Amino acid sequence: MAPSSLVVWGVLAACVAAGKAQWTPGTATFYGGNDGSGTMGGACGYGNLYNSGYGINNAALSSVLFNDGASCGQCYSIMCDPSRPGGQWCKPGYSITVTATNDGGWCNPPRPHFDMSQPAWEHIGVYQGGIIPVQYQRVKCSRTGGVRFVINGCNYFELVNIQNLAGSGSVGAAWIKGTNTGWIQMSRNWGANWQSNAALVGQGLSFAITSTGGQYIQFLDVAPAWWQFGQTFTTCQNFDY
């Protein structure tokens, strides 16, 4: 074999090895009923998962993956692994992409585990199996429309649920700005809820987000001065990474 061929072969082998290294072993179960209705809500605070942009292909993550809510909104490609014990319940050749929407920390700690919606799980596993061995990797999220902001709280602070992120899918840092203020850094309260201790009632609101992928976007004039707690505001901007 010519030296140039050896180089090409070595590069190809390295690429194949790198591709395999992206997959990590874990396990998966299902919950929420055959229509997935029981998966609505959850520890990320997204509420109705259709309204917040996530739909039925969702999962609760074990503690090691959920990371105290930092993983909310992230996407994972999952396929059943027929080579491991329990693999007889696999549907070989199928994979499914799910969004992290809930905390399944009670499931198999400290192992990486996905408690998936039943419709998503049955895409890769046979119902009678109950629990299956899987391979998973984090993947880029694809979303319809822009980032959404659900504003809750009270007169003395804002609690904002940030939803429907594409790209890396999750929030790394967030800021809020009133009509009469500069940018105020927010802190994660729980799940995908970010908190500001400023009293911004009666001011128009803008937001800025750095995704966990490192992309920074400003969402200007998201909410008018007459916004009220409990309202959702949708933008036309979203993340690439």
Rank of each mutant, 00 (worst) to 15 (best):
P82H: 11
T24E: 15
R143I: 01
I162A: 07
A100D: 13
L220A: 09
A28T: 03
Y156E: 11
G129A: 10
A13C: 03
R138Y: 00
S5N: 07
G178M: 08
T212P: 04
G10S: 12
Q215N: 07
I124W: 01
D221L: 00
T179Y: 14
Y136K: 03
V160W: 12
G129Q: 09
S5T: 14
G125W: 01
A2N: 09
G214Q: 12
Q228T: 03
L159N: 11
I132N: 10
A17W: 12
I132L: 13
P3H: 04
L65R: 14
I132D: 12
W89C: 07
G145I: 01
T234A: 15
R111K: 13
D103W: 03
S187I: 06
Q88A: 12
A21D: 14
G19W: 06
W9T: 01
V98T: 05
T232C: 15
V7I: 09
A198K: 06
A13K: 08
G191W: 03
N102A: 14
I132M: 12
F30D: 05
I56H: 02
N48V: 02
L220I: 13
Q163E: 15
G230C: 03
A70N: 10
G202F: 05
E122D: 08
P85S: 11
M1W: 15
L6V: 11
R111V: 01
T232Q: 15
P92E: 15
T181I: 05
D35Y: 05
N67F: 00
M1A: 14
S117Q: 03
W226F: 01
Y216Q: 10
A60W: 01
S77I: 00
S170G: 09
G204F: 04
T234N: 15
Q137A: 10
G178K: 06
V98M: 14
N102Y: 02
Q237V: 00
G86M: 05
I96P: 00
G104A: 02
H113R: 06
Q118L: 04
S211E: 07
G38P: 07
G19D: 12
H123G: 07
F157N: 14
A173W: 01
D115I: 04
A13I: 03
K91R: 08
G73Q: 08
T179P: 05
Q22N: 12
F157I: 02
K91A: 04
G204M: 10
W190V: 14
A192H: 09
K20P: 02
T27R: 07
A208M: 13
A198E: 13
I176R: 01
M79H: 14
P92W: 13
K20Y: 00
A225N: 12
A166F: 05
A225R: 06
W121E: 05
Y94H: 10
F114I: 00
W226D: 14
V98W: 13
V8S: 14
N161R: 12
N57P: 08
S95I: 00
A199V: 07
T210C: 11
G191V: 02
G202E: 11
Y156P: 03
L165R: 02
P133M: 04
